[in-house]
Amino acid sequence: MRQLHEEAEDKEVGRMPADEELFRALLHLEARAGALKSGEARRKAAITRVKLWEYLREQADVHQAKAIEDARAANAEWAELVPALAVNTPSAAYNKATRLRAAALTDLSHGDRPVRRTPEAVLEVERQAALRAAEERRAQEHAARRHGLVAPVAQRLIEHRAGLDDDGEVTFWLDQIAAVLPSCKTPTQLVSVETYVEAVVRELRKVERATARPAASTAEAQLAYAAAAELVSRS
């Protein structure tokens, strides 16, 4: 927009507010729309102004919704918000506040489309978001519990790897455990460690079938192997 006015040699372009002051900048551009000489420039500038006003309106809704949230958190009654929201009843204030929350939501069930501005649509999307958040919390809690089981078993395999058959595949998977285990924090990393433990057990069993002898040569390694095998059997 600034460039269009510079190219049109608008004498007032230097007085245009900074880009960060969007509201004042749009008012200035509206007042100086006639300074653009070509019809194409005026059309392009006007359409851009429409887009920017729409953006500003959406941002206003988001911030007004946050202000309402803060007011309610400070024990403001809906009746107190009636004049602030330019409505006539507390129920209308509640409904308008619910519709305003739509600006900050997207409907994942419909391809991230904006939420319809009805209380029913907003409440449904918020309900779905709460269900997803609860599911994520359960997954994280499960991962934490599983980590408490998997990490000690994986650590014992690493500590006593010298007593395990030095088959190439066994060594490879033990190396994978050793690489990931020290920084294992996320559910994805936990799944990786568990997969590697399963692979170690699988390869050690192959060694035992192929050689007809124990895959562990020390008591500590045998206990580590047995713990890993039990973990795998329960997964």
Rank of each mutant, 00 (worst) to 15 (best):
Q3M: 04
L4S: 00
H5G: 02
H5P: 04
E6D: 03
E6W: 01
E6M: 02
A8I: 07
R15A: 14
D19P: 06
D19L: 15
D19T: 15
D19H: 12
L26Q: 07
L27R: 15
L29Y: 08
L29N: 04
L29K: 00
A31I: 00
A33P: 00
L36V: 09
K37P: 11
S38G: 14
A41W: 05
R42L: 13
R42I: 14
R43C: 14
K44M: 12
I47A: 12
T48N: 11
T48E: 14
K51W: 13
L52A: 11
Y55H: 07
Y55V: 12
R57Y: 13
R57N: 05
E58R: 15
Q59N: 08
A60M: 07
Q64A: 14
A71W: 05
A71C: 04
R72N: 04
E77K: 10
L81P: 03
V82K: 08
V82H: 10
A84Q: 10
A84S: 06
P90R: 01
S91F: 02
K96M: 07
T98K: 07
R99D: 04
L100S: 14
A103F: 11
A103R: 05
A104Y: 02
T106C: 07
L108Y: 07
H110I: 10
R113E: 12
R113V: 15
T118M: 03
A121E: 07
V125A: 01
R127G: 11
L131W: 10
L131G: 04
A133K: 09
E136S: 08
R137F: 02
A139N: 07
E141D: 11
H142A: 15
H142I: 12
R145Q: 10
R145H: 07
H147R: 15
L149K: 10
L149F: 05
L149Q: 10
V150T: 09
A151P: 00
Q155P: 03
R156K: 15
L157I: 07
R161A: 12
D166M: 02
F172T: 09
F172D: 11
W173S: 04
Q176N: 12
A179S: 11
L181F: 01
P182C: 03
C184Q: 13
K185I: 14
K185N: 15
Q189S: 11
V191D: 11
Y196P: 06
V197P: 05
A199V: 14
V201T: 02
V201D: 00
R202D: 08
R202S: 06
L204H: 03
K206N: 14
V207P: 04
V207R: 02
R209G: 08
A212D: 05
A212C: 06
A212K: 00
A215Y: 05
A216E: 00
S217R: 00
T218R: 05
T218M: 07
A219P: 01
Y225L: 12
Y225V: 01
A226T: 09
A227H: 14
A227D: 15
A228G: 06
A228P: 02
L231T: 14
